[in-house]
Simulated scan of single mutants.
Amino acid sequence: MKKTRSKFVAQLRDVIINVGFLYLENTPVDKDIISKLKAQIPDLFALPQEQKDNIRMANSPHFLGYSKLGMELTKGAVDYREQFDFGTSCISSYKPGDPEYCNIYGPSQYPTDQQLPGFRTLHETYLTQLLTLATDFIHLVSEAVGLPPDALDQFYKSDNRMHLTKIVKYPVQSHSQQGVGAHYDGAMITFLLQASEEHHGLQAQNLRGEWIDVPPKSDTFVVNFGRSLEFVTQGVVRATSHRVLAPPLDSKTPRYSVPFFYSGMDLEVKVDESVLKMPPEILKLRDGRGILPSTEAINYPEYAHDVAGCHPDVAERHYPELFRELFPNGMPLHGVAY
Rank of each mutant, 00 (worst) to 15 (best):
H242M: 09
V145Q: 04
N54P: 00
A308F: 07
F84C: 06
F119R: 09
F323T: 06
K284F: 04
L326H: 11
N103T: 03
F261G: 01
P254F: 06
T27Y: 05
G309D: 14
L202Y: 08
P117Q: 06
H163M: 04
H242T: 08
E273M: 10
L127R: 04
G290P: 10
F260T: 01
A297C: 03
E25D: 10
D43S: 15
E25Y: 08
T125V: 02
L322N: 07
Q177I: 09
Y80R: 15
I291Q: 12
K52D: 05
Q109S: 09
I104Q: 11
W211L: 03
S294E: 15
Q49S: 11
I91E: 15
R13L: 00
S263H: 10
E268L: 10
V168R: 00
D32P: 00
Y80C: 04
H183F: 07
Q178Y: 07
N54M: 12
R208F: 05
R317M: 07
F221I: 06
D219P: 07
S35R: 14
Q234N: 14
P247Q: 10
P42S: 02
N54C: 08
E230N: 06
T240R: 07
L267T: 05
Y338C: 11
Y126E: 02
P254A: 08
P293G: 02
C102Y: 15
K52F: 05
E25A: 04
F45R: 13
Q234C: 13
P328R: 02
P259S: 03
M188Y: 13
M331V: 07
S142L: 06
E124C: 04
P148S: 11
P61I: 13
L193Y: 09
I298G: 02
Y80I: 14
Q234W: 03
P215W: 03
K270R: 15
Q154H: 09
P107E: 06
Y319H: 14
I16A: 01
D79T: 06
F225I: 11
T125Y: 00
L326N: 08
L333N: 12
I16L: 15
K7W: 02
Q234P: 07
M278L: 15
D313F: 03
A134L: 10
M71W: 03
R238P: 08
A239E: 12
P320V: 12
R161D: 00
E302Y: 06
P61N: 12
G87K: 08
L44V: 08
E82V: 11
I91H: 13
S92M: 09
G65M: 09
P280K: 13
R56G: 00
Q194D: 08
W211R: 02
I16D: 01
S174N: 09
V258S: 06
F45Y: 11
V180M: 07
D272I: 07
T240I: 13
M1V: 10
T253K: 13
S89L: 15
T135P: 00
G70A: 02
F231K: 12
V244T: 12
D219L: 04
D136F: 08
E210S: 01
F84Y: 15
S176G: 07
C102N: 14
H242P: 04
M1L: 12
T165Y: 01
M57C: 00
G106C: 08
S218T: 13
P320R: 10
I41V: 14
E321Q: 11
N18M: 02
